[in-house]
């Protein structure tokens, strides 16, 4: 008797139905921004990168372009491309825009600490951008939207209480490779989607250069780790032990960054421990 070797039609584990995902995230923004929190408008820090561009595209669909403000916040060492690419998004969507040069604020502070290393300087820039974003949200009577994706959240690749601080974030459960796919689907300009991802805090910096692994690989390894596969088993999917340990190391060392600050519990009504109410209650 013939032995048949049949295999399932396996799709990529991170494949998304892009139409449904778009609907899902647009409805998420309408519900969380308008219904739950009572805002009609949103502000987004647009860097010219794919995450903030995609967030702007989704927000324009959800709230209408007239209700979305894209804020460019360059520092004097930021790449000129970042500013130009952010403008492409503003022009394509017809959203409102504002440019705030953060150099005087950042330099005003850092001149007190001229020896601050690049990491400290990057953190100061990121936190200064949040001061601007939250202040402008009040001026525009809007809610700030976050733009962080699942890959950078899991790898801890952001400034704590800066990039992660906006109260509503549509991309937080999308890996970077999924962000790219959705951005292409929604027509984000190819020059933005195709360029190497960068935090643009240090000249010439790229995310993948900082990680030592591509997003394509890191996302799949993260996916398998979160699905409960052991590192040994993940090697069966074609990843080296070194790659898996690199990703797992970042994941395991950054749980604190995905949590609220730790409070000492001394009562039976400790907030978040005993006194439990959801964010939208």
């Amino acid at each position: 008797m013939e032995v048949l070797k049949l295999t399932h039609d396996t799709t990529h584990p991170l494949a998304l139905h892009l139409e449904l995902t778009t609907t899902w995230l647009v409805e998420f923004l309408r519900d969380e921004v308008v219904r739950r929190r009572g805002f009609r408008r949103a502000v987004i820090g647009i860097s010219g990168g794919v995450d903030s561009s995609l967030t702007a595209y989704l927000a324009a669909k959800a709230l209408g372009p007239e209700n979305v403000m894209g804020i460019r916040m360059p520092y004097r060492t930021s790449s000129p491309d970042s500013l130009a690419h952010a403008q492409l998004v503003v022009d394509a969507l017809g959203i409102k825009s504002l440019t705030v040069d953060i150099s005087p604020a950042v330099d005003g502070y850092l001149k007190l600490f001229p020896d601050a290393d690049p990491r400290r300087r990057g953190n100061v820039m990121a936190r200064t951008r949040m001061i601007v974003l939250f202040d402008q949200s009040m001026a525009f009577n809007a809610l700030p939207l976050g733009t962080g994706n699942k890959s950078e959240r899991l790898l801890g690749y952001y400034t704590w209480h800066a990039d992660d601080s906006p109260p509503v974030n549509p991309l937080g459960d999308l890996f970077k490779t999924q962000v790219w796919a959705l951005a292409r689907h929604l027509g984000v300009p190819p020059v933005i989607v195709e360029k190497p991802a960068t935090a643009d805090l240090i000249q010439g910096q790229t995310d993948e250069g900082d990680f030592g692994i591509t997003y394509y690989k890191a996302d799949l390894i993260l996916h398998y780790l979160l699905e409960g596969y052991s590192p040994e088993r993940i090697t069966e999917f074609g990843f080296t032990s070194g790659e898996i340990l690199l990703v797992k190391g970042r994941l395991d060392s950054t749980h604190w960054k995905r949590s609220l600050p730790t409070s000492a519990m001394i009562s039976q009504t400790a907030i978040g421990e005993y006194y439990l109410r959801p964010v939208d209650y």
Partner: peptide
């Protein structure tokens, strides 16, 4: 239906 704290 509807989103509750991000859960749709």
């Amino acid at each position: 239906c509807g989103f509750e704290g991000g859960k749709g």
